[in-house]
Every structure is written in structure tokens, then in C-alpha cells.
Amino acid sequence: MAIDAARFDHEKFVHDVLYKITDHQDGSPDHELPDDHQCRFGKWYDGVGREQFGSLPEFRELEGVHAQVHQTARSIQASLASGNRDEVTRQGPELINLKQNILQDLDALRVAVVGHRGERGES
């Protein structure tokens, strides 16, 4: 999976969580959220991503923020299940900020990869 595909998978995960915030009816989650190693982005990060980019600090920066995304998403899901809308409302913007952090980190990774390939004479 390329960086663009990882970016798309991350955006879709966050979109799906945010959709549940705005469209949740009964307070019970319809499925368990994957952890940060089980989601598509996490599988990319732990596998091909690490093989291709693991030596780059920009890649390693993603790990902590990605884990925070999942912690926040699980907390939102728990707050929805318990009917705590105030907490859901507080955490929604936090999840959006974390999403933006990952996207910025992916952009930085893309720049680092291009620079790294240029240093090695690759195109």
C-alpha cells in the first residue's frame, strides 16, 4: 500500500467514526473498532510501511498519533454507548485534530521519501 492509500484508509476510518457521532440513534455500537494494529492503516504501518520507510524518523512519528486516534475513537464509541453526548461532543474535535496530525505526518513522510530517493539517485 502506497502512502496515498494509507492516507485514504486513515481518512475513511476517522470519517466512519465521525459519521457515527452525527447519525447514532440508539447509543449502542454496531461493531467493535479495530485497534491501531488491526485497521488497514495499522497493517500497512506494521508491514510494508515499516519495511519501506521504517528507517525514516518521519515514518516513526506516525505511530504515537495513530495510537491516539484509536484511543479517542474507542472513547467516543464508549461515550456513545453510555449516552454521554457531552463527552462525544468534546472528543469529536479532538479526533479531527488527530486526523489532521496524521495527514501532516504523512505529507512529511512523502517529502522525506522523495528527498531520500533523491540522495540515493533513485527516481
Results as ranks from 00 to 15, higher is better:
Met1Cys: 09
Ala2Ile: 05
Ile3Gln: 15
Ile3Met: 15
Ala5Tyr: 05
Ala5Val: 14
Ala5Cys: 04
Ala6Met: 15
Arg7Pro: 11
Phe8Met: 08
His10Pro: 07
His10Arg: 14
His10Asn: 14
Glu11Gly: 13
Lys12Leu: 07
Phe13Ser: 09
Asp16Thr: 04
Asp16Gln: 03
Val17Tyr: 10
Val17Ile: 15
Leu18Met: 07
Tyr19Pro: 06
Tyr19Asn: 13
Lys20Met: 05
Ile21Arg: 05
Thr22Ala: 08
Asp23Trp: 14
Asp23His: 09
Asp23Ser: 14
Asp23Gly: 09
His24Tyr: 09
His24Pro: 07
His24Thr: 01
His24Asn: 14
Gln25Thr: 03
Asp26Pro: 07
Asp26Glu: 11
Gly27Ile: 06
Ser28Val: 11
Asp30Gln: 13
His31Thr: 02
His31Cys: 01
His31Ser: 12
Asp35Asn: 14
Asp35Ser: 07
Asp35Trp: 11
Asp35Thr: 04
Asp35Pro: 06
Cys39Ile: 11
Arg40Cys: 00
Phe41Leu: 03
Gly42Glu: 15
Lys43Glu: 12
Trp44Pro: 11
Trp44Gln: 06
Asp46Val: 04
Gly47Glu: 00
Gly47Ala: 04
Gly49Trp: 12
Arg50Glu: 13
Glu51Leu: 10
Gln52Ser: 12
Gln52His: 09
Phe53Trp: 12
Gly54Glu: 05
Gly54Gln: 11
Gly54Tyr: 03
Ser55Thr: 07
Leu56Cys: 10
Leu56Met: 12
Phe59Leu: 02
Glu61Arg: 13
Glu61Thr: 06
Glu61Tyr: 09
Glu61Ser: 13
Leu62Tyr: 12
Leu62Asn: 05
Glu63Thr: 14
Gly64Gln: 05
Gln68Leu: 08
Val69Trp: 10
Val69Cys: 09
His70Gly: 00
Gln71Ala: 11
Gln71Thr: 07
Ala73Leu: 00
Arg74Met: 01
Arg74Ile: 00
Arg74Asp: 01
Ser75Val: 01
Ser75Trp: 04
Ser75Ala: 09
Ser75Tyr: 05
Ile76Met: 07
Ile76Gln: 03
Gln77Val: 00
Ser79Gln: 05
Ser79Asn: 14
Leu80Tyr: 08
Ser82Val: 03
Gly83His: 01
Gly83Gln: 00
Gly83Phe: 02
Gly83Cys: 00
Asn84Phe: 00
Arg85Ile: 11
Asp86Gln: 14
Asp86Phe: 12
Asp86Trp: 12
Asp86Gly: 10
Glu87Arg: 14
Glu87Met: 13
Glu87Phe: 02
Glu87His: 14
Glu87Val: 07
Val88Lys: 00
Thr89Asn: 08
Gln91His: 09
Gly92His: 09
Pro93Met: 08
Pro93Leu: 09
Glu94Gly: 04
Glu94Asn: 05
Glu94Arg: 08
Leu95Ala: 01
Ile96Phe: 08
Asn97Trp: 08
Asn97Thr: 04
Leu98Gly: 04
Leu98His: 06
Lys99His: 05
Lys99Cys: 09
Gln100Ile: 11
Asn101Lys: 14
Ile102Arg: 09
Ile102Ala: 03
Leu103Met: 15
Asp105Val: 06
Asp105Tyr: 12
Leu106Trp: 06
Asp107Cys: 00
Ala108Asn: 09
Ala108Pro: 10
Val111Asp: 13
Val111Asn: 07
Val111Ser: 08
Ala112Pro: 08
Val114Phe: 10
Gly115Val: 00
Gly115Met: 02
Arg117Met: 03
Arg117Asp: 00
Gly118Lys: 05
Glu119His: 11
Gly121Ser: 02
Glu122Tyr: 15
Glu122Thr: 06
Ser123Pro: 11
Ser123Thr: 13
